Amino acid sequence: MADGEDKRFEHWFRGQEKWKKTGQVRFLTAMERSNHSVTEFILLGFTTNQGMQLGLFVVFLSVYSLTVVGNITLMVLICNDSRLHTPMYFFIGNLSFLDLWYSSIYTPKILVTCISEDKSISFAGCLCQFFFSAGLAYSECYLLAAMAYDRYVAISKPLLYAQAMSIKLCASLVAVSYLGGFINSSVITKKTFSFNFCRENIIDDFFCDLLPLVKLACGEKGGYMVLMYFLLSFNVISPALLILASYLFIIATVLRISSSQGRLKAFSTCSSHLTSVTLYYGSILYIYTFPRGSSYSLDTDKIVSTFYTVVFPLLNPMIYSLRNKDVKEALNKLLP
């Protein structure tokens, strides 16, 4: 690691001598670097200020609690109310399940690091977090594409909708979303953790993400970067293009509707999904495709990463329920 980076991290740990003394936070020695003996990583997180850490703990705990309650409630409503036993709500229920799982990969570890002096994560723990993070992120991209196809069929072929979007097809689309996501996650995880991490074991982030890990890795990275961008194109860009194509067909269909009220009703059925797609893809594409110039800041990446890993799973239940009459009626029916 360059001298400038060493000084930056040493400055970060200034005033944290008690961590170093207990061995909970330490820099790798030159011998450890040459022996590639990284057995754990240190997650720098957001701040070293204890007051701010306590405040962040309260914020993240509140967000996670609402995320769990919101997504579980939506899944229960969809399972219990027969009016919600449609392809659209089947996909929404699976999206809630995915978001609940997705949030649980990150937030518990963030909460621990906010109140604990131990900022470390084991090599195996980092690998598992990376694997499930990539797998669920890719799966969500596929699932959002499947939901766009569902909206296309509902608007373009309303009379054949029930027949075209059969239970078997919907279940197959969800299964393929998870299968494709985790197969590709296995590939990138195996390749990433086959590197020797012979520089530092310090990750300037709050979770084991791809870009910070690549920065710590040693060896030739040319082939790896090609693979990384291929998987990015295959798992993120390709579903985004399918979503775009679906909405182009939807727009063409809606414009042929003579009634303005009919056009508004057709577009309203897509508004929640469009909001989810815009928020999720916007943050993902910013992190992994935005050019890094001289003004690039890791803090900006942390804020954007926090949005799609922690905040977005909370927003989805709200997006799909607050303006949805069927969900509101199902909730009123469930509540005493």
Rank of each mutant, 00 (worst) to 15 (best):
L54G: 14
P313Y: 01
L227T: 10
V327P: 00
I115S: 09
R26P: 00
S260I: 09
L322N: 04
S62V: 09
T47P: 01
S172Y: 06
Y149N: 04
F97L: 15
T269I: 01
I237Q: 00
A146D: 02
T192K: 02
S139G: 06
R14T: 08
A162R: 14
D99H: 11
V153K: 07
D6P: 00
L255W: 14
L211R: 10
L335I: 15
L98A: 11
S103D: 11
F307Q: 02
I155H: 10
L216G: 13
V25Y: 05
L248Q: 13
I303Y: 01
M52D: 09
K328Y: 05
R199Y: 05
R33L: 08
M165K: 04
I42C: 03
L335C: 10
K119P: 00
I92V: 13
M31A: 15
T107Q: 10
S166R: 06
Y296N: 06
C270Q: 05
G219R: 12
I155W: 10
E117Y: 07
Q16A: 07
K168P: 08
I155A: 10
T113C: 06
K21I: 08
G222L: 14
Q163L: 14
P317Q: 08
A2Y: 06
S297T: 09
A252C: 12
L169G: 07
A2E: 13
S297L: 14
K21C: 00
S271P: 00
T269H: 10
S297W: 02
I155D: 13
N316M: 13
H36W: 12
L44Y: 07
